[in-house]
Simulated scan of single mutants.
Amino acid sequence: MTQDFAGRTALVTGGTSGIGREVARQLAARGAHVVISGRDAVRGAAAVEEIRAAGGTADFVRAELDDLASVRSLAKEAIAVGGGHVDVLVNNAGVFPFGATAEVADGVFDSTFAVNVRAPFYLVAELAPAMAERGHGSIVNVTTMVATFGMAGMALYGSTKAALGLLTKSWAAEYGPSGVRVNAVSPGPTRTEGTEAMGDSLGELATQGPLNRVGTVAEVAAGVVFLASDAAAMIHGTSLPIDGGRLAV
């Protein structure tokens, strides 16, 4: 496999499971030193060990992304363990509470925006300026198909990811002239540990797209890695749908 990320450090939030863990695997397989963040140190150690056993380089940094001090600390620790630089940032971590608007508790609203919007915002604030100084870097944000159309029960989750989609464009405009590319992927129904709780409804969502099946973490991760790579050098400020064609209908 090509080692096109050799010499680069990649920070992947929510990298202990699901899409994030697969992104970390794929980046490490292509030569990146991957810094995985998450809340669970046991799962973090397992993710790191898997990469190292395959010959890759990885470290784990525990972080609570609903706490701003922890977010800032994560950025600094990622730089420290990553050899003094972070070249790729994948804002993958997210929480996805579903339910009626009138039933959303104040604390859930605040914590969802903290993890899904504030954490990426401040990680970019901490890491992108140094990327710009070096003249290169790539940021990939993970959003969702329901950030672009309305769906009952998705108001809170969808609105946080819609905000992240606009931030993607804003950061591309802000940092693009300095060589930092900022893009997003927009997954549709994807089978992960987190979405298992959705049961049959995940498959029902997938039937609304032409492909008519649930996606895999490997398929979404491949899109993330492509956007982070030099192969996407001319792609700035866009969102790549990985949704089985749902946005086509």
Results as ranks from 00 to 15, higher is better:
162 A>S: 15
179 G>Y: 05
7 G>T: 02
104 V>Q: 12
191 R>F: 11
144 T>L: 07
40 D>W: 10
217 V>H: 15
70 S>L: 14
80 A>M: 13
150 G>T: 03
133 E>D: 15
241 P>D: 09
23 V>I: 08
41 A>V: 11
249 V>H: 11
214 V>N: 13
75 A>K: 06
147 A>I: 03
154 M>L: 03
159 S>F: 10
89 L>S: 01
161 K>D: 01
216 T>H: 08
209 G>V: 04
84 G>Y: 13
71 V>H: 01
8 R>D: 03
126 E>T: 12
196 E>G: 00
25 R>T: 10
80 A>C: 08
2 T>W: 13
35 V>Y: 00
205 L>D: 08
161 K>W: 13
75 A>M: 05
248 A>D: 05
39 R>K: 14
181 R>M: 05
100 A>C: 11
88 V>C: 02
147 A>K: 07
32 A>P: 00
192 T>I: 11
184 A>Q: 14
215 G>S: 11
56 G>A: 04
147 A>L: 09
38 G>F: 01
29 A>P: 15
19 I>Y: 00
94 G>K: 00
189 P>A: 01
60 F>A: 00
61 V>K: 01
76 K>P: 08
21 R>P: 00
86 V>Q: 11
29 A>S: 15
40 D>Q: 04
60 F>K: 05
134 R>E: 12
21 R>M: 06
168 T>A: 02
16 T>W: 01
233 A>E: 02
78 A>K: 12
54 A>M: 07
249 V>Q: 07
218 A>L: 14
75 A>H: 03
99 G>P: 11
204 E>V: 14
131 M>F: 08
207 T>E: 15
107 G>R: 05
38 G>M: 05
238 T>E: 15
55 G>M: 08
223 G>Y: 04
233 A>T: 12
193 E>G: 11
39 R>E: 06
30 R>G: 02
25 R>G: 04
187 P>A: 07
6 A>S: 14
32 A>C: 03
184 A>P: 15
198 M>E: 04
234 M>G: 07
113 F>S: 08
195 T>H: 02
107 G>I: 06
69 A>F: 07
41 A>C: 12
209 G>K: 13
44 G>M: 04
63 A>K: 14
189 P>D: 13
96 F>N: 13
179 G>I: 10
96 F>P: 11
92 N>I: 00
2 T>P: 15
10 A>E: 02
52 R>F: 08
24 A>V: 02
127 L>W: 09
2 T>D: 14
5 F>C: 14
15 G>R: 05
242 I>S: 02
233 A>C: 02
231 A>D: 12
246 R>E: 01
15 G>Q: 05
76 K>I: 01
21 R>H: 06
138 S>I: 14
